[in-house]
Design a protein around this nucleic acid. Structure first.
Lengths: 224, 224
DNA sequence: CACAATTTTGCATGCCGTGCATTTTTGCAT
DNA sequence: ATGCAAAAATGCACGGCATGCAAAATTGTG
């Protein structure tokens, strides 16, 4: 299940490469068809035909029809976690997370066309935006654990005596890591949402920076 | 769509009262059946039978089967908005929202049994938790507008000249109200989530207070 | 090339969700 | 109270979604 093999550019076997090619073809076909005809007018049969596979095969890759529209990049969350943990030790958690997210979002803007289509599909179908949000929430748990680990690592600088239980209380995550992970995800969502409505007025990086500045300041009443 | 009529305890006509009774019966039957047999084992037919209506009638009240598990109190968001707008004018937005949410959550703990069942159902079925999150997001837009209005009202104290457009730019909400609304919703979710895992260690009010204290402080790294 | 493992595919099945016409209930005016 | 119009509930039919199962096709390996 975990696809332990390094699954970035080229995973060893021809089998896995073809699997990912089929999956990507299905996802891209789904997004393009949805952008053209509207999301709810696209049947599984049409997606499968566009990708060159049978209807049954579609359900071998996605648990539901909507999943094809939602999943864009499965290992983006892993990259964010790694970048967050690799940030300079002195940085506060919120700042480290801001940098990690900003780097990932800059990277995401490379596939600008598909991203834009995807955003349009999600905006025109609130139902799918919710599912996308759900995928974001699935990452939240892993990110919260990374935050907790980074805080422990920071504390270990001061108190060298490492606690005997390394990951014993993993089943009961603390409050702060969860809150920070959840709020950061929300911040990304609001930034994208706000920026999508004004593609020309402001840059995405500017919106993103302003959002995190507001968070770091404790969400004060805006001055006019 | 807006159910303009004051829809609190007893809405005028017998019609609307019976409608809400049927809707509540369906929702409660759905939650109880899901808590007993598991959410995905409950068919629409079973829910309808338990509520004493036909299958077709079920779909007259809910757009999908899952919606029956998600919606608990349709006008909770309206109460929060009103309480938020009625808060003392001097209070900063974050504090006013904290108080409004705390009051609503205290009120929600009255139907403790159904709430607890509902929480268990949502935790056992991530799929439904996502839909619940979606319902929360639907309220987000209205709450953001209320926040924007409160801020405008606060500014009108300083500059008495009221702007000619009262709700002209409703279509283009500003960044801060949206962010605050979204983060507050996230804060509630994380509070409930965290508290549900430790029902005995801490009180819900305590978790809730700690979360908003962290937000108001700008999510600083926790001191040990 | 032969063989085992994996993937794809077709078929059957059941539930979900919607449109339409019909029947029943409700509110209101007489 | 009684008839009437609006609204809700119901039954029926239809198509898409989603899964299990077994057969056929494809890939990796000796």
């Amino acid at each position: 299940m975990h696809t332990m093999t390094g699954n970035d550019a080229a995973g060893g076997g021809l089998r896995e490469r073809k699997k990912r090619a089929t999956r990507a073809a299905l996802a891209e076909a789904a997004v393009r068809l949805a952008a053209e005809h509207g999301a709810d007018q696209v049947t599984v049969e049409a997606i499968s035909a566009a990708a060159g596979v049978s209807v049954r095969t579609f359900f071998n890759y996605f648990d539901s029809r909507d999943d094809a529209f939602v999943v864009v990049d499965a290992d983006a969350s892993g990259r964010v976690r790694r970048a967050f943990l690799a940030a300079p030790p002195g940085l506060p958690p919120l700042e480290a997370l801001r940098e990690a997210l900003a780097a990932e979002l800059r990277e995401a803007e490379r596939q600008h066309e598909l991203w834009s289509l995807h955003a349009r599909v999600l905006r025109s179908a609130p139902h799918l935006l919710v599912r996308n949000l759900g995928a974001q929430m699935a990452d939240e748990s892993g990110l919260a654990e990374a935050i907790a680990r980074r805080i422990r690592a920071g504390d270990d600088q001061d108190a060298a005596g490492a606690p005997p239980e390394d990951d014993a209380d993993r089943a009961a995550p603390e409050l702060y890591p969860r809150l920070l992970a959840a709020v950061a995800g929300t911040a990304v969502r609001v930034s994208v949402q706000h920026w999508c409505e004004r593609p020309d007025e402001v840059s995405f990086a500017g919106v993103f920076r302003e959002v995190f500045d507001l968070l770091a300041a404790g969400l004060p009443a805006p001055a006019r």
